[in-house]
């Protein structure tokens, strides 16, 4: 049974922001992480503002050449938008293997980001797409690059009075590839052992831009900028890809847990980064 708590169910963003203004309440989105944490008594919060009745937080729009996805957009919404297969291939790949059908119907992209877990599957894809998040509060909105949003395990730059209202990015164009692979103990309903997202842009036979984001192998999801820098401006040879993959593996700070050992996580980060870089280079070139 859940502990007793107080709940407000606003239908407008304005009302939700006002209710959060004093920093004493916690936003509740799909509840798929929050309710198990409450039941297990690991989350002490007992005042919640439910965001699920706020229609303006849910949906996928295009504005000024960017995709703008409301924080309340569910994983199922992502799978039902055919245009995202071009505009965010890695994110669609992550949504396909996200938990199970019932959780995908409830869980939101904003909730997955804000929970701050290193195994949040939407985060490596969004980092690979250079996404920005919009944080709104009664004091006004601010934009923050997703790279820089996560401070430590389940710690982010968000204040207690803020809601993640949107995540936005510029869709990759021609000559690009954007891939995600989730390694889990099984295909469905699994918490990620190692998650890797890669984005490459190729111009004139050289890598013009590289992004490598790793999940579940450190206290936060993170980009391997050293490895990205090795690739940019170069034609991607097998040797260079191997060196970048090794750099990615060396950047991991994984833990041992019931799903995998730290050693296995680093090893698979190496293998998967190499594999995805090779695939992306072939696709984009």
């Amino acid at each position: 049974m859940l502990p007793a708590f107080e709940l407000l169910e606003p239908t407008s963003l304005e009302d939700a922001l006002e209710a959060l203004a004093d920093g004493r309440a916690t936003p509740m989105a799909g509840g798929t992480n929050l309710l198990p944490d409450l039941r297990a008594r690991v989350d002490p919060a007992r005042r919640f503002v439910d965001l699920s009745r706020i229609d303006e937080l849910r949906g996928i729009d295009r504005a000024n050449g960017r995709v703008v996805m409301g924080g309340g957009t569910t994983l199922t919404d992502i799978l039902r938008d055919p245009a995202l297969r071009q505009a965010a291939p890695s994110l669609v790949a992550a949504a396909e293997v996200f938990a199970g059908l019932m959780v995908r119907n409830a869980a939101t992209v904003g909730g997955n980001i804000c929970y701050g877990s290193p195994s949040a599957d939407v985060v490596p894809p969004l980092l690979s797409l250079d996404a920005e998040v919009t944080l709104d509060s009664h004091q006004g909105a601010r934009s923050v690059p997703l790279d820089g949003f996560f401070l430590d395990y389940k710690k982010t730059v968000m204040r207690a009075d803020e809601i993640l209202t949107a995540v936005s990015w510029t869709p990759p164009g021609p000559g690009t590839a954007n891939l995600f692979y989730k390694l889990g103990r099984r295909k469905g309903d699994a918490i990620t052992v190692t998650g890797v997202a890669v984005a490459l842009a190729v111009e004139g036979g050289r890598c013009a831009k590289a992004r490598i984001a790793l999940g579940s192998v450190a206290p936060t999801v993170f980009r391997v900028k050293d490895a990205e820098g090795m690739l940019e401006g170069e034609p991607l040879t097998d040797e260079l890809i191997e060196a970048a993959a090794r750099t990615a593996a060396d950047a991991c700070r994984p833990i041992d847990d019931l799903r995998a050992s730290a050693e296995y996580r680093s090893h698979t980060a190496h293998v998967l980064t190499r594999r995805l870089l090779r695939q992306a280079w072939e696709l984009a070139a």
Partner: peptide, 27 residues
């Protein structure tokens, strides 16, 4: 399981399948 892992509690809510253990009754 009461944590969204097993699906034994699945129901349709306005035609969408959800885990009723992860859905507050008031929602």
């Amino acid at each position: 399981c009461e944590k969204g892992d097993c699906g034994a509690c699945a129901v349709l809510l306005d035609g969408e399948v959800v885990d009723s253990c992860l859905t507050l009754a008031c929602k």
